[in-house]
Design a protein around this nucleic acid. Structure first.
Lengths: 212, 212
DNA sequence: TTCCCCCTCAGTGTATACACACCGAGAGGA
DNA sequence: TCCTCTCGGTGTGTATACACTGAGGGGGAA
């Protein structure tokens, strides 16, 4: 693995997890020393983070970790809705129906009654997203969504896992997958809309009073 | 202006204009020499182009200008539709109505009967896009759309300006702007859909037979 | 003659040195 | 006392040197 990749992955994780708080100044020498690489690969990593939008060039000489608050979450979900409803529509027209039928059944069967089950549920969602990406086969949509998902990880840290919400989320996913399997584009899109609405509401509700 | 910015802007323009054809291998030393910068800023420029998707790391040791064909145009318009219909909806709810009313009238008045008028029309579209960006005020949507637009420039080179189509496009824009000004989100979204459908059809029609 | 191995070289990845610009502190003058 | 100018320092931007890896060609052996 290249040094620049290591630096990127490390910084990415630290920003997503909140270890590097929004507003933190990222000095090149300081970070390079800390991560044990030279300034050259570190600059490359910072550049990629800037392209991702996770890091901002506040002034020509100072780069900081990008801010992230409730308004960002709302904006993120607007973009997500635009992209994911389109993905649902296109997958309905193009997808491998049996694959989505199987995924739908997996979502239906999911019982989130243990930590392992929750881990497995996250993995299932990842497989569902991958199936959508594969079915739609549109690099531009996939890449835009990838950026959105990168930012979304930051929202998790502001919220708490809510088991009731997760069970409902599984049911919503089951419906989306089922609609895709049936080739029902309208239902798939609208079920995605509903799912995102509920997910956003749950996230905003779980935010501490002052952060909404 | 920094050397890396110069290199980026130059390469960007050459890729968008087709001066650097798809598949062209971009050797660091070769390009750095050609552009009169050292490898360090050139690598930064290449990195940004990779993030944009205009350049691809074909193998660990060779980076090439990303391919671009009719299927890419279709995929691009799918992503564009997802984002722009959402922009239209949100702008309808949030936009400065008088600004869009004025833009709508400008579109209605546009008569594309000279090269200068066409230049002015392109500028008007740019102002319209900027007004949408400002009205929606969503950095994630704007940034995703910015990437899409960057790629879209490449499509222009494959097509020819068609004056009849452009006049129709002006009318379509007038309707979108008018719907936004009226706060009619549904109409704005559907008019955007129609506009993109027509634009895509015109582009694909104008492609040489073998490229469709 | 053909196949395989080794060597060379081209080209990237990283480290480092140097240049330069901006910011802040301190001192001097008004 | 306050404003301004200058000087030093900190940190980025760029150039360059070195290291390493992978590919291609040539030579040797079967």
């Amino acid at each position: 693995m290249r040094a620049s990749d290591r630096a990127y992955v490390t910084l990415l994780d630290e920003i997503q997890s909140g270890a590097l708080a929004p507003g933190t100044v990222l000095g090149e020498v300081e970070q390079a020393t800390r991560l044990g690489v030279s300034r050259t690969p570190l600059r490359e990593a910072i550049g990629r983070l800037v392209a991702d939008g996770l890091v901002t060039q506040q002034s020509p000489r100072v780069t900081v970790v990008t801010d992230f608050d409730a308004d960002d979450i709302r904006a993120l979900f607007e973009a997500r809705r635009a992209l994911e409803t389109m993905m649902a529509r296109l997958a309905s027209a193009r997808g491998d129906r049996s694959a989505f039928r199987a995924l739908s059944e997996e979502f239906t069967r999911a019982h989130l009654d243990s930590d392992e089950a929750i881990e497995a549920y996250y993995a299932l969602i990842a497989r569902f997203d991958a199936a959508l990406d594969a079915a739609v086969d549109n690099a531009y949509l996939t890449s835009a969504l990838r950026t959105i998902r990168t930012h979304l990880v930051r929202a998790r840290r502001l919220t708490s896992d809510n088991r009731g919400r997760m069970q409902a989320s599984a049911d919503e996913h089951a419906l989306i997958a089922s609609a895709v399997a049936d080739g029902d584009a309208e239902l798939a899109a609208h079920a995605t809309h509903v799912h995102l609405h509920n997910a956003l509401t749950a996230i905003l509700t779980s935010l501490p009073e002052g952060n909404r």
